[in-house]
């Protein structure tokens, strides 16, 4: 791994980030001549046009929507470099960064547990299916993977919340709103979170497990046909050595890539599920911001998600180049 590669890669990341910020700024403003218009009060009788203009201008300044769009863009970028994501239009004008900080952990509870469970169980199942290649276990996995990919997670979530939540009342179908407000790291609070998270995680994990299992299976089968596996056997290595030292070690390379992709989509991946279970995460926050035309919050969330994805990609590449000596950091993209 050469330093020049690393520098090139980081510069590219910064460039992409700037483009992303620009897009996140301008896309919500497409075709909107005056985004602040929805906050203007009606022009009361007896108010002169100048007065009304003044009031409108005050509102624009309040929301940071004064000046030309380009001027706003420059201001926004300047703020961003000082680490300020702006102020939300929500009542009480909270800082965008505080809104995100409040909701992020709850999304992470869902998506991280989903990712880890999918990864571990998926790899186990996939390895087993590769082992039993062509037998019923393998066929079951293949069918399960087409079926679960065709079943959207939100439909699984609805079915789960219908039966496990409403009919049999095993798990809560709606998240207890006190859970997030009064979280205090007590055992009680943690168990409440786990209890509430059970259904959403379950709904997400089904597709995740199957997808990891399927790619693990394909990868293991592809690798176990490679010549070096034969060499390893010809050396007289035990089966365990061959499988863990050579087959799985090489088969995990594409899984690392897939895992990295999933990590980069970690925050934005549970929007619909959060909506169904009324989970106070980033998805819900974003939907609220969207319906309120809350520009700073919308942009803040999208920029945050993109930054997260960029960092995740960078880390994945780094980890990958450690695992596969044939690949240098700058090369794999």
């Amino acid at each position: 791994m050469k330093a020049s590669y690393v520098i090139k890669r980081i510069l590219l990341t910064i460039f992409i980030f700037l483009v992303v910020i620009t897009l996140c700024f301008f896309i919500p403003r497409i075709g909107v001549s005056d985004p602040a218009s929805r906050y203007y009060p009606a022009q009361t009788a007896g108010m002169s046009d100048e007065e009304y203009e003044y009031i409108k201008e005050q509102i624009r300044i309040q929301y940071g929507l004064n000046g030309s769009t380009f001027q706003q863009y420059i201001n926004y970028m300047a703020d961003l470099f000082t680490g300020d994501l702006g102020t939300s239009y929500q009542t009480g004008s909270p800082k965008v960064i505080d809104c995100i900080a409040e909701c992020l952990p709850w999304t992470l509870v869902l998506s991280v547990s989903n990712l880890l469970i999918s990864l571990v169980i998926g790899i186990l199942i996939g390895t087993m299916a590769a082992w039993k290649r062509g037998r019923w276990q393998d066929k079951l996995l293949l069918n399960a993977s087409t079926i679960t990919t065709a079943l959207p997670a939100f439909f699984i979530a609805l079915i789960l919340s219908f039966y496990l939540g409403f009919e049999w009342e095993i798990f809560p179908a709606y998240t207890d709103q006190n859970m997030t407000a009064n979280f205090d790291w007590s055992w009680q609070a943690i168990s409440t979170v786990m209890y509430n998270a059970a259904l959403p995680v379950f709904a997400m994990v089904i597709g995740g497990i199957v997808s990891y299992a399927q790619s693990t299976r394909n990868s293991v089968i592809a690798v176990s046909g490679d010549d070096f596996i034969l060499t390893a056997k010809a050396k007289g290595l035990s089966n365990n050595k061959v499988i863990y030292g050579h087959t799985l070690r090489n088969a995990m390379l594409p899984i690392v890539t897939q895992f990295g992709m999933n990590v980069s989509g970690l925050i934005g991946g549970s929007v619909v599920i959060e909506q169904i279970f009324n989970w106070n995460g980033m998805g819900t926050l974003f939907l609220t911001a969207n319906s309120n035309n809350d520009y700073p919050l919308m942009m803040g969330i999208m920029i945050f998600m993109s930054a997260f994805a960029l960092v995740a990609n960078l880390l994945t590449d780094f980890v990958y180049s450690l695992l596969d000596p044939r690949v240098t950091l700058g090369e794999r993209r």
Partner: peptide
């Protein structure tokens, strides 16, 4: 196969055709 593992490499060894694919690329 278990008993064969003790024989392979020790009593009989093999040289393969394409050394690039016959060696584990990440080791």
């Amino acid at each position: 196969d278990k008993q064969m593992q003790k024989v392979r490499g020790k009593d009989v060894a093999m040289i393969f055709q394409d050394a690039l694919t016959a060696l584990n690329p990440v080791m």
